[in-house]
């Protein structure tokens, strides 16, 4: 099998929709780790995360024709599938959909443990470049499936403040990644 060089997003999507194995190889090699990072941070269980990554990847494969490039990038679409799958599984497991927000305040510290295991150079550099209160917010919403409202409540800041911090954080990250 010929190794695929860096594919443009358009080429990739086209080959995925044509159900070409090479395209899925490329997708897995380039994105499975990032999706795994998101899933693991939500369910906080390595073994379960691997099962969920399988579910997510198969969903991507089955539903690829639902993906509409005019609505955004492929990765954003895949992340939404990964987050929803992981959040559903986590809630079903822990039955946390009835959990009171107060109990969340007490558990929030332990939920960050997942991060410390996987610190790599990049993440350290990012953390140094992003104010911690902003990174916490981004991670709660993006990696742990909290809504902005829940995150604001847990951190005891007004929703408006949370929203503007999230915006600033993304602008800082944009500059950091030079995008």
């Amino acid at each position: 099998m010929t190794a695929l060089k860096k594919l443009s997003e358009e080429e990739l999507v086209q080959s995925l929709k044509a159900n070409q194995r090479q395209a899925y190889d490329y997708l897995y090699d380039n994105y499975a780790g990032a999706l795994m990072g998101i899933i693991t941070r939500i369910v906080k269980d390595r073994e379960k995360s691997e099962d969920l990554l399988q579910d997510v990847f198969l969903k991507i494969w089955k539903k690829i024709n639902d993906y509409d490039p005019s609505k955004g990038r492929l990765f954003t679409w895949m992340v939404n599938i990964a987050r929803n799958t992981a959040i559903d599984a986590y809630r079903k497991d822990k039955n946390v959909f009835l959990e009171d927000i107060d109990t969340k305040i007490n558990t929030i510290d332990t939920t960050f443990v997942a991060d410390s295991v996987n610190y790599n150079f990049d993440v350290k550099a990012i953390t140094e470049n992003l104010k911690s209160d902003r990174k916490v917010l981004i991670d709660m919403v993006y990696f742990q499936g909290y809504t902005q409202e829940e995150a604001a409540e847990i951190l005891q800041i007004p929703l408006g403040t949370a929203k503007s911090r999230i915006r600033t954080a993304l602008q800082d990250l944009k500059a950091y990644f030079r995008i």
Partner: peptide, 9 residues
Amino acid sequence: TMEAYAKAH
């Protein structure tokens, strides 16, 4: 940006 952020993690 979020793609890069997720890849870093």
